[in-house]
Amino acid sequence: MRTLPLLAAAALAAPLAAAAPTPQPGLWTVEARVVSVDSQNVPALVRRMVEGRVETYERCLTPAQARGQFERLLVQEEARCSFSEARFAGGAMRVKGRCTSDKGDMTLDLSGTHSGTGFRATNKMTLTGRLGTVDVTAAHVGTRKGRC
């Protein structure tokens, strides 16, 4: 009757396999690379200058922010944002929201993967500002560097 020990081992391992990583507090470095810019209002030369551009920033996340506001790591600090969806479960991340700043408005639709100490995601944004409506796709890579 080897089946019973195997079933018992599988039942005990199931909760461990289902345990999902949670974003960890600490110092994070985020790299955002512009993949594409799509708008008739943006001249081709400007588009070529912007596509491939990388912005790197660091942020310190408190334990409270890591538990319930990890999505704030993905937007400008001064932006006023509301999020209709912010899920970080099973190694997947999904964030949808709208932000307003002095530079204009933005909607974001981000999806990717995370390990608790790192993430990779694609962000499809629609920006509304001086140039009208501009669709931008960016690739984000975040890494927890350690304590704040």
Rank of each mutant, 00 (worst) to 15 (best):
A8K: 04
A139Y: 05
M106L: 15
L16R: 01
V30Y: 03
D109Y: 01
A32F: 06
G112C: 05
R87S: 07
S82V: 09
Y57G: 05
E78T: 14
G68E: 11
A11S: 07
G112I: 03
T107I: 13
T29V: 06
K103V: 03
C148Q: 11
F70V: 12
N41M: 14
G142F: 11
R87G: 00
C60A: 13
R120A: 04
R2E: 09
Q40I: 09
S101L: 07
T107A: 09
A92C: 01
V95Q: 13
R48E: 14
A11F: 14
G116V: 09
C60F: 11
R94K: 11
V95Y: 10
L4Q: 03
R47G: 11
G90R: 01
T56W: 10
M49V: 03
K145F: 00
M93E: 12
A64I: 08
K103H: 07
S111D: 09
A139N: 07
A139E: 14
C81V: 05
S111A: 10
A11G: 10
R147A: 15
A17N: 00
R2Y: 12
A44G: 04
V34N: 02
R48Q: 09
V141H: 12
A9R: 04
A44I: 14
L7Y: 08
L74Q: 02
A9Y: 12
E78N: 09
P15T: 01
C99I: 03
T62G: 02
A79D: 15
G97A: 05
F70Q: 07
M106D: 05
A11T: 10
T143R: 12
E58H: 01
G68F: 13
G90I: 06
A139F: 04
E58T: 12
P21K: 05
L110F: 00
A66K: 04
M93P: 04
R147K: 13
S84N: 02
V30G: 01
T22H: 14
K103P: 00
T117R: 06
E31P: 01
F83Q: 02
G68L: 03
H114D: 02
A44Q: 15
V34K: 13
P25K: 12
E71V: 05
